[in-house]
Simulated scan of single mutants.
Amino acid sequence: MIKRADELRVEYSPNLKGGKETVKIINILENEDNYGTGRLFGVSIIPVGGSIGKHRHDGDFETYYILKGKARVNDNGNEQILGPGDMTGCKDGDYHAIENIGDCDLEYIAVILYTQQKQQ
């Protein structure tokens, strides 16, 4: 499979999970491409001052890998500052949030995988 940049589906999610501003999500894989193993593999872009609000993962887990910018991450109550090359993971049953506290767009790879494979 090959997909060109202009073939990738882009979503715009205002106030995602109660956060601020509009998050842009570039979907690298669609649900039908992941063989029932997860529901997101994409690049998320949060504008300056924007955020994704605190939310819990049930039945899945999420990993962020920071590509660009500066993030404040709430990892189950533990707040940390992350930058390019850093990662954070939210386990099944835990919660997290992310906020762009830098002076440019925050860009990161986001992957959400199921804790048990779903039937297609």
Results as ranks from 00 to 15, higher is better:
M1D: 11
M1P: 10
K3E: 06
K3S: 09
A5R: 10
D6F: 12
L8I: 05
E11Q: 13
Y12E: 14
P14V: 02
P14Y: 08
N15R: 11
K17Q: 12
G19Q: 08
G19C: 02
E21N: 14
T22S: 02
I25P: 01
I25T: 12
N27V: 04
I28Q: 10
L29D: 00
E32Q: 11
E32F: 11
N34R: 15
N34K: 14
N34G: 11
Y35D: 13
T37S: 14
G42K: 07
G42R: 03
G42L: 07
V43Q: 05
I45R: 05
S51G: 06
S51V: 02
I52D: 13
I52T: 13
G53R: 06
K54R: 14
K54E: 06
K54S: 09
K54A: 08
K54Y: 08
D58A: 12
D60T: 06
E62H: 11
T63N: 11
T63Y: 08
Y64T: 04
Y65I: 11
K68H: 04
G69C: 01
G69W: 02
K70S: 00
A71T: 00
R72Y: 00
V73M: 05
D75C: 10
G77Q: 03
G77H: 07
I81V: 05
G83Y: 02
P84E: 03
G85E: 03
C90N: 09
K91A: 15
K91M: 14
D94I: 07
D94S: 12
Y95L: 05
H96G: 12
A97P: 01
E99V: 01
E99H: 01
G102M: 00
C104G: 12
L106I: 03
E107Q: 10
I109W: 07
I109R: 03
A110E: 08
I112N: 12
L113A: 12
Q116R: 09
Q117G: 08
Q119W: 10
Q120W: 13
